[in-house]
Design a protein around this nucleic acid. Sequence first.
DNA 1: GTAGGGTTAG
Length: 626
Amino acid sequence: MSLFPLQSSSLQPQTPGAPKRKQPKNLKPQQTPIKTPTRTFKWSSLLPSNPLQTLLSGEHPDPRALPLILSSTSPLSSPPFRSQIHSLALKLNLLSNPHLLSSLALSYGPTKGPTLLSQSPDPRNPLPWTLLLSKSNPRSALKLFDKMLQLNIELDSVAYIVLMKACGQLGSLREAKRVHKVVRLSGLSDVVVHNAMVKMFLECGGVEEATRVFEGMRVKDLVTWTTMIVGFVRSGEFNEGLKLLREMCRKEGRIDGFLVTGVLPACARVSAHKNGKEIHAKIVRLCLGMNNKAPAVENALMDMYVKSGNIEYGKKIFKRMDFKDAISWTVMIFGCSLHGEGEVGVELFKEMKRKGEVFVDRTAFAAALHAANSACLVEEGKSLFTFLSKPQVEHYALMAGLLSRGGYFIEARAFIEEHKLTNCSPVLKAVVDGCRIHRNIRMGKRIIEQLTELEPLNADNYVMLSNLHANEKLEMAKEIKETIQDMGLKTKKAYSWIEIRSKVHAFGTGDVSHPRSEAIYWELERLMKTMREEEGYVAREDYSFHDVDEERECIACGHSEMLAIGLGLISQRSGVLRVTKNLRVCRNCHDSAKLISRIVGRKIILKDPERFHHFKGGVCSCRDIW
DNA sequence: GTAGGGTTAG
């Protein structure tokens, strides 16, 4: 009761001439100073921050002020006070005011709110219902929808859009189909409704359904295209996304910031450097990235460059940005980390924190920990970790991985036990990585055993075990390989690709299907010979799993990344070679690529799922830890 | 002087 000391008197203001007409003095300092003197009084009486004044001002409560009170965060919007406003509204017959009705219903929430609405003077008005829908959690929103159907409320476009958004958030394709049916029967056909429908299906994993709606739309706007393209990109269908972009450019002939921001991640993921550059040119020409308050376009561009191998362009954009938000910093920190510049990444993170202009969120922390990992900065990482108030799995994995990569195995184990992470597979996998690098077979084996218990059908775990032995014990590696086959598990096949004159050329292990295969092998043999004779190169024994399931394992230079590099060398006489591989680079290929970069005097950038290797002059940016 | 809607980046 003491929370609401004015509660009992609050219902009194209707009594004319009550002694509480004047504002209590102690409330004055809360008034917000307003510059225009003529408006001062009117505004301040409506400000939710000081709603008491309105009720205590003596006259009949202003129905326009009550919704503001109800939606305020003050204790006055709490249940006891709300009931009093409700009874006041009933007494004064104010519920015909749709605004007051809406805010009361909203304040009652999705369970009790509908009763109030259905008993109001205009129960079918969709607006208050929609308001309630928009503020409910997805599950309640769908329940509310059923209620609306029962009560025969006529839903309009906005109501359907709100409903479909909720359905998308719920992610249930079954519900999406049900809603879709009702919307179709309603006959509403404006483009915004259809856009919402496409998005709903995409969010529920119904790419096919979304495509059907998309294709059936006679009128499409930029939002339609953006929604569909982003949908493809998010479901991993990058090439479909890029294809649709080209179709859109042909048909629409215009683009906007939203669209490019949505499609750039596709370029980043398929390392379609050229496509990305084209989009960059368009952005510059159309001045799309000019929003200084929300640098989404620049951030996406930066991310695309960083992830398709061009860290330098990314840095240039970052430097030129007037306003950087948390994402801008995170992209750059992560970018440095990916390109073997972990120290720079950690320094950037410190600068970000020091400046204090943006909120340092958990993704920024993860990027910084990733950078510490990349440069093996164990102490730096430990100190970063102490600043994290609520670490997530990704942070734990990065920290445990860092300890292990640094060779601090006892600490890594203590860390896992201290934070009760013994059943957390991402953390365990990160530690195995360090065991592999430092050849700590015993600990690696033990952890992988734990992992196979957690995920017995995940082939990756057995591959890890095999790779752990790959450098020493061929027999063991073979045995594990047989186990995988016996269990009928599928392992990933290795492949690499290179973009030459806008065309992507892909290679598998020992691939001979490329039209220029003969020349590729010939070139690689020639280089191998130079490496052996002039550089004293001796291939190490390596029975890493991911590339040995082909019969051509005996061909030293037959790994997919080498074939892609070979094609690059014979097709482009100068410039940087950019190759992408779907699995980690093997040790021999890594050694070879270093030497080749020196022999031919060219830079080779090889991307694997974890990082970029910049081979130049015989060294790699990863400092041989990967 | 008051209430409901679709697209973007780490």
